[in-house]
Protein backbone atom coordinates (compact mmCIF):
# COMPACT_ATOMS: atom_id res chain seq x y z
CA UNK A 1 0.00 0.00 0.00
CA UNK A 2 1.32 3.41 -0.91
CA UNK A 3 1.45 5.52 2.15
CA UNK A 4 1.91 8.89 0.53
CA UNK A 5 0.00 8.95 -2.75
CA UNK A 6 -3.49 7.99 -3.82
CA UNK A 7 -3.76 4.65 -5.56
CA UNK A 8 -3.12 4.53 -9.29
CA UNK A 9 -6.09 5.00 -11.59
CA UNK A 10 -7.48 1.80 -12.99
CA UNK A 11 -6.41 -0.34 -10.03
CA UNK A 12 -8.13 -3.53 -8.96
CA UNK A 13 -9.80 -1.56 -6.16
CA UNK A 14 -11.85 0.65 -8.46
CA UNK A 15 -14.82 -1.67 -8.20
CA UNK A 16 -14.95 -1.02 -4.48
CA UNK A 17 -15.58 2.64 -4.99
CA UNK A 18 -19.18 3.47 -4.43
CA UNK A 19 -19.28 6.76 -6.25
CA UNK A 20 -16.58 6.64 -8.87
CA UNK A 21 -18.28 8.71 -11.57
CA UNK A 22 -17.04 12.14 -10.59
CA UNK A 23 -14.60 11.44 -7.80
CA UNK A 24 -10.93 10.78 -8.06
CA UNK A 25 -7.87 10.88 -5.84
CA UNK A 26 -8.41 12.18 -2.34
CA UNK A 27 -12.11 12.73 -2.86
CA UNK A 28 -12.78 9.10 -3.71
CA UNK A 29 -14.39 7.05 -0.98
CA UNK A 30 -14.03 3.39 -0.30
CA UNK A 31 -17.20 1.35 -0.21
CA UNK A 32 -16.94 1.64 3.57
CA UNK A 33 -16.01 5.16 4.55
CA UNK A 34 -12.59 5.33 6.11
CA UNK A 35 -11.53 8.93 5.75
CA UNK A 36 -10.68 11.00 8.76
CA UNK A 37 -13.13 13.61 9.83
CA UNK A 38 -13.26 15.61 13.00
CA UNK A 39 -15.38 13.55 15.41
CA UNK A 40 -16.41 16.84 17.01
CA UNK A 41 -17.33 18.58 13.71
CA UNK A 42 -19.80 21.33 14.48
CA UNK A 43 -19.63 20.76 18.24
CA UNK A 44 -18.98 23.92 20.27
CA UNK A 45 -15.63 23.15 21.90
CA UNK A 46 -15.16 26.51 23.65
CA UNK A 47 -13.66 25.95 27.09
CA UNK A 48 -16.17 26.97 29.82
CA UNK A 49 -15.54 30.26 31.62
CA UNK A 50 -13.11 30.08 34.47
CA UNK A 51 -11.61 26.75 33.38
CA UNK A 52 -7.91 26.48 32.54
CA UNK A 53 -7.71 24.88 29.06
CA UNK A 54 -4.64 22.92 30.20
CA UNK A 55 -6.54 21.49 33.19
CA UNK A 56 -9.44 20.35 31.01
CA UNK A 57 -7.11 18.89 28.36
CA UNK A 58 -5.01 17.01 30.91
CA UNK A 59 -8.16 15.54 32.43
CA UNK A 60 -9.53 14.46 29.04
CA UNK A 61 -6.20 12.77 28.30
CA UNK A 62 -6.50 10.71 31.49
CA UNK A 63 -10.00 9.51 30.61
CA UNK A 64 -9.14 9.10 26.94
CA UNK A 65 -5.93 7.18 27.56
CA UNK A 66 -7.70 4.83 29.99
CA UNK A 67 -10.17 3.99 27.22
CA UNK A 68 -7.57 3.78 24.45
CA UNK A 69 -5.18 1.44 26.23
CA UNK A 70 -7.93 -0.79 27.64
CA UNK A 71 -9.45 -0.94 24.16
CA UNK A 72 -6.13 -2.03 22.70
CA UNK A 73 -5.62 -4.74 25.32
CA UNK A 74 -9.15 -6.01 24.63
CA UNK A 75 -8.61 -5.93 20.88
CA UNK A 76 -5.56 -8.16 21.36
CA UNK A 77 -8.03 -10.84 22.47
CA UNK A 78 -9.54 -10.92 19.00
CA UNK A 79 -9.56 -14.58 17.80
CA UNK A 80 -8.26 -15.82 21.20
CA UNK A 81 -11.41 -15.87 23.34
CA UNK A 82 -12.85 -19.20 24.59
CA UNK A 83 -15.69 -19.07 22.08
CA UNK A 84 -16.84 -17.00 19.14
CA UNK A 85 -19.57 -15.15 21.03
CA UNK A 86 -17.11 -14.04 23.70
CA UNK A 87 -14.58 -13.05 21.07
CA UNK A 88 -17.20 -10.76 19.55
CA UNK A 89 -18.21 -9.45 22.98
CA UNK A 90 -14.63 -8.39 23.77
CA UNK A 91 -14.21 -6.86 20.31
CA UNK A 92 -17.47 -4.93 20.70
CA UNK A 93 -16.34 -3.63 24.07
CA UNK A 94 -12.99 -2.63 22.59
CA UNK A 95 -14.83 -0.73 19.85
CA UNK A 96 -17.02 1.17 22.32
CA UNK A 97 -13.97 2.19 24.31
CA UNK A 98 -12.07 3.19 21.19
CA UNK A 99 -14.97 5.45 20.28
CA UNK A 100 -14.90 7.03 23.74
CA UNK A 101 -11.12 7.45 23.46
CA UNK A 102 -11.39 9.14 20.07
CA UNK A 103 -13.91 11.68 21.34
CA UNK A 104 -11.97 12.35 24.54
CA UNK A 105 -8.61 12.78 22.81
CA UNK A 106 -10.26 15.07 20.25
CA UNK A 107 -11.78 17.04 23.12
CA UNK A 108 -8.36 17.33 24.78
CA UNK A 109 -6.84 18.61 21.54
CA UNK A 110 -9.65 21.11 20.99
CA UNK A 111 -9.32 22.42 24.56
CA UNK A 112 -5.56 22.84 24.40
CA UNK A 113 -3.84 22.23 21.04
CA UNK A 114 -0.55 22.40 22.91
CA UNK A 115 -0.98 18.79 24.06
CA UNK A 116 -0.87 17.43 20.51
CA UNK A 117 2.50 16.15 19.26
CA UNK A 118 3.87 18.20 16.36
CA UNK A 119 4.05 16.24 13.10
CA UNK A 120 5.84 17.10 9.84
CA UNK A 121 4.20 19.80 7.72
CA UNK A 122 1.56 18.32 5.45
CA UNK A 123 0.74 15.40 7.71
CA UNK A 124 -2.94 14.46 7.40
CA UNK A 125 -2.96 12.80 10.85
CA UNK A 126 -5.85 14.26 12.90
CA UNK A 127 -5.11 15.48 16.44
CA UNK A 128 -6.67 12.49 18.23
CA UNK A 129 -4.53 10.12 16.15
CA UNK A 130 -1.43 12.19 16.78
CA UNK A 131 -2.12 11.81 20.50
CA UNK A 132 -2.69 8.07 20.23
CA UNK A 133 0.20 7.20 17.94
CA UNK A 134 2.89 9.84 18.41
CA UNK A 135 3.29 10.12 22.17
CA UNK A 136 5.87 8.13 24.10
CA UNK A 137 5.00 5.96 27.07
CA UNK A 138 5.75 8.60 29.72
CA UNK A 139 3.31 11.01 28.04
CA UNK A 140 0.35 8.67 28.53
CA UNK A 141 -1.87 9.35 31.55
CA UNK A 142 -3.88 6.12 31.96
CA UNK A 143 -3.80 3.97 35.08
CA UNK A 144 -1.50 0.95 35.07
CA UNK A 145 -4.38 -1.50 35.47
CA UNK A 146 -5.31 -1.08 31.79
CA UNK A 147 -1.78 -1.49 30.41
CA UNK A 148 -0.39 -4.66 32.02
CA UNK A 149 0.05 -7.62 29.69
CA UNK A 150 -2.98 -9.79 28.98
CA UNK A 151 -3.30 -13.09 30.82
CA UNK A 152 -5.98 -15.77 30.69
CA UNK A 153 -9.72 -15.27 30.32
CA UNK A 154 -10.19 -14.74 34.07
CA UNK A 155 -7.60 -11.96 33.84
CA UNK A 156 -9.47 -10.08 31.13
CA UNK A 157 -12.86 -10.25 32.87
CA UNK A 158 -11.38 -9.12 36.21
CA UNK A 159 -9.51 -6.28 34.50
CA UNK A 160 -12.68 -5.26 32.69
CA UNK A 161 -14.78 -5.39 35.85
CA UNK A 162 -12.38 -3.23 37.88
CA UNK A 163 -11.72 -0.70 35.12
CA UNK A 164 -15.30 -0.35 33.96
CA UNK A 165 -16.82 -0.21 37.46
CA UNK A 166 -14.69 2.83 38.30
CA UNK A 167 -15.19 4.37 34.86
CA UNK A 168 -18.96 4.06 35.03
CA UNK A 169 -19.07 5.66 38.49
CA UNK A 170 -16.92 8.53 37.21
CA UNK A 171 -18.80 9.06 33.94
CA UNK A 172 -22.17 9.07 35.70
CA UNK A 173 -20.96 12.09 37.67
CA UNK A 174 -19.43 13.64 34.55
CA UNK A 175 -22.89 13.86 33.01
CA UNK A 176 -23.16 17.05 35.08
CA UNK A 177 -19.75 18.41 34.04
CA UNK A 178 -19.57 22.14 33.39
CA UNK A 179 -17.96 21.22 30.07
CA UNK A 180 -20.91 20.34 27.83
CA UNK A 181 -18.70 18.30 25.49
CA UNK A 182 -17.40 16.13 28.31
CA UNK A 183 -20.93 15.83 29.70
CA UNK A 184 -22.23 14.60 26.33
CA UNK A 185 -19.40 12.09 25.87
CA UNK A 186 -20.07 10.83 29.39
CA UNK A 187 -23.83 10.49 28.90
CA UNK A 188 -23.25 8.30 25.86
CA UNK A 189 -20.47 6.34 27.55
CA UNK A 190 -22.65 5.57 30.58
CA UNK A 191 -25.02 3.54 28.40
CA UNK A 192 -22.14 1.47 27.03
CA UNK A 193 -20.32 1.02 30.33
CA UNK A 194 -23.55 -0.19 31.93
CA UNK A 195 -23.74 -3.33 29.80
CA UNK A 196 -19.95 -3.76 29.78
CA UNK A 197 -19.91 -3.84 33.58
CA UNK A 198 -22.84 -6.26 33.72
CA UNK A 199 -21.08 -8.54 31.23
CA UNK A 200 -17.80 -8.60 33.15
CA UNK A 201 -19.54 -9.04 36.50
CA UNK A 202 -21.59 -12.01 35.24
CA UNK A 203 -18.42 -13.71 34.05
CA UNK A 204 -16.71 -13.17 37.41
CA UNK A 205 -19.68 -14.83 39.11
CA UNK A 206 -19.73 -17.69 36.58
CA UNK A 207 -16.01 -18.35 36.94
CA UNK A 208 -16.17 -18.04 40.73
CA UNK A 209 -19.09 -20.49 40.98
CA UNK A 210 -17.92 -22.70 38.10
CA UNK A 211 -15.38 -25.50 38.18
CA UNK A 212 -12.44 -25.81 40.54
CA UNK A 213 -10.22 -24.77 37.65
CA UNK A 214 -12.26 -21.69 36.71
CA UNK A 215 -12.32 -20.63 40.37
CA UNK A 216 -8.58 -21.20 40.74
CA UNK A 217 -7.90 -19.00 37.72
CA UNK A 218 -10.32 -16.32 38.87
CA UNK A 219 -8.70 -16.14 42.31
CA UNK A 220 -5.32 -15.84 40.61
CA UNK A 221 -6.54 -12.95 38.46
CA UNK A 222 -8.09 -11.18 41.46
CA UNK A 223 -4.84 -11.49 43.42
CA UNK A 224 -2.86 -10.20 40.47
CA UNK A 225 -5.05 -7.23 39.54
CA UNK A 226 -6.62 -6.10 42.84
CA UNK A 227 -3.39 -4.36 43.91
CA UNK A 228 -3.82 -2.07 40.88
CA UNK A 229 -7.30 -0.89 41.91
CA UNK A 230 -6.28 1.78 44.48
CA UNK A 231 -4.51 3.74 41.74
CA UNK A 232 -7.88 4.24 40.00
CA UNK A 233 -9.37 5.76 43.16
CA UNK A 234 -6.36 7.85 44.21
CA UNK A 235 -6.78 11.62 44.09
CA UNK A 236 -4.29 12.72 41.44
CA UNK A 237 -3.72 16.52 41.37
CA UNK A 238 -4.86 16.64 37.74
CA UNK A 239 -8.19 15.08 38.60
CA UNK A 240 -8.61 17.19 41.73
CA UNK A 241 -7.94 20.35 39.70
CA UNK A 242 -10.52 19.32 37.08
CA UNK A 243 -13.04 18.52 39.82
CA UNK A 244 -12.44 21.91 41.49
CA UNK A 245 -13.05 23.61 38.14
CA UNK A 246 -16.37 21.78 37.85
CA UNK A 247 -15.40 19.84 34.73
CA UNK A 248 -14.00 16.64 36.25
CA UNK A 249 -14.61 14.10 38.99
CA UNK A 250 -12.44 13.48 42.01
CA UNK A 251 -12.06 9.68 41.91
CA UNK A 252 -11.91 9.57 45.70
CA UNK A 253 -15.59 10.53 45.62
CA UNK A 254 -16.55 7.31 43.82
CA UNK A 255 -14.62 4.93 46.08
CA UNK A 256 -17.58 4.00 48.28
CA UNK A 257 -19.84 3.34 45.30
CA UNK A 258 -17.15 1.24 43.60
CA UNK A 259 -16.62 -0.77 46.79
CA UNK A 260 -20.32 -1.48 47.06
CA UNK A 261 -20.57 -2.72 43.47
CA UNK A 262 -17.48 -4.89 43.74
CA UNK A 263 -18.68 -6.34 47.06
CA UNK A 264 -21.95 -7.24 45.37
CA UNK A 265 -20.08 -9.12 42.61
CA UNK A 266 -17.69 -10.83 45.02
CA UNK A 267 -20.57 -11.97 47.22
CA UNK A 268 -22.47 -13.40 44.24
CA UNK A 269 -19.33 -15.24 43.16
CA UNK A 270 -18.63 -16.60 46.65
CA UNK A 271 -15.35 -14.70 46.73
CA UNK A 272 -13.44 -12.91 49.46
CA UNK A 273 -12.04 -9.45 48.90
CA UNK A 274 -8.38 -10.01 47.95
CA UNK A 275 -5.90 -8.99 50.61
CA UNK A 276 -2.92 -8.29 48.35
CA UNK A 277 -1.12 -5.02 49.10
CA UNK A 278 -1.55 -2.16 46.58
CA UNK A 279 1.13 -1.38 44.03
CA UNK A 280 3.26 1.55 45.06
CA UNK A 281 4.84 4.34 43.07
CA UNK A 282 3.64 7.50 41.35
CA UNK A 283 1.53 5.62 38.83
CA UNK A 284 0.18 6.09 35.35
CA UNK A 285 -1.60 9.42 35.91
CA UNK A 286 1.88 10.90 36.45
CA UNK A 287 3.30 9.15 33.39
CA UNK A 288 5.07 6.39 35.34
CA UNK A 289 4.26 3.13 33.58
CA UNK A 290 5.31 -0.50 33.44
CA UNK A 291 7.56 -2.03 30.81
CA UNK A 292 4.44 -3.70 29.39
CA UNK A 293 3.26 -0.35 28.06
CA UNK A 294 6.43 0.24 26.04
CA UNK A 295 6.09 -3.06 24.20
CA UNK A 296 2.37 -2.53 23.66
CA UNK A 297 2.96 0.93 22.19
CA UNK A 298 5.75 -0.33 19.96
CA UNK A 299 3.21 -2.68 18.43
CA UNK A 300 0.30 -0.22 18.37
CA UNK A 301 2.22 2.79 17.04
CA UNK A 302 4.78 1.34 14.65
CA UNK A 303 2.84 1.68 11.39
CA UNK A 304 1.58 5.19 12.09
CA UNK A 305 5.05 6.35 13.12
CA UNK A 306 6.66 4.87 10.02
CA UNK A 307 4.29 6.94 7.84
CA UNK A 308 3.55 10.31 9.48
CA UNK A 309 2.48 11.62 6.07
CA UNK A 310 0.45 8.53 5.21
CA UNK A 311 -3.04 8.59 3.78
CA UNK A 312 -4.95 5.38 4.23
Amino acid sequence: MSATTPGPAGSAYDGLLEHDADLTGDAAQWAFGTDFEDPLAGVDTAVPDGVEPAVLAAYCLMLGDDALVLSHRLSQWCSHAPDLEEDIALANTALDLLGQARLLLARAAAADPGVVPVLPAGSPVPPEDALAFFRDAEQFRHVRLVEVENGDFAHVVVRLLLAVTVRLAVLVRLEDSRDPVLAAIAAKGVKELTYQRDHAARWVVVLGQGTAESRRRLLGALDELWPLLPELLARHPGEVAAARAGVGVDPGDVAAEVDAVLDQVLAAGGLDRPAAAPWEGAGGRSGVHTADLASMLADMQSVARAHPLGRW
Binding site: L40, G42, V43, L103, P180, K188
Partner: peptide, 10 residues
Protein backbone atom coordinates in the same frame (compact mmCIF):
# COMPACT_ATOMS: atom_id res chain seq x y z
CA UNK B 1 -21.31 19.14 5.06
CA UNK B 2 -22.08 17.08 8.11
CA UNK B 3 -21.91 18.12 11.72
CA UNK B 4 -22.01 15.87 14.75
CA UNK B 5 -24.51 16.25 17.56
CA UNK B 6 -23.48 14.48 20.76
CA UNK B 7 -26.31 15.54 23.05
CA UNK B 8 -28.80 14.16 23.75
CA UNK B 9 -27.25 10.72 23.29
CA UNK B 10 -28.97 8.47 20.76
Amino acid sequence: RVEVSLSPAW
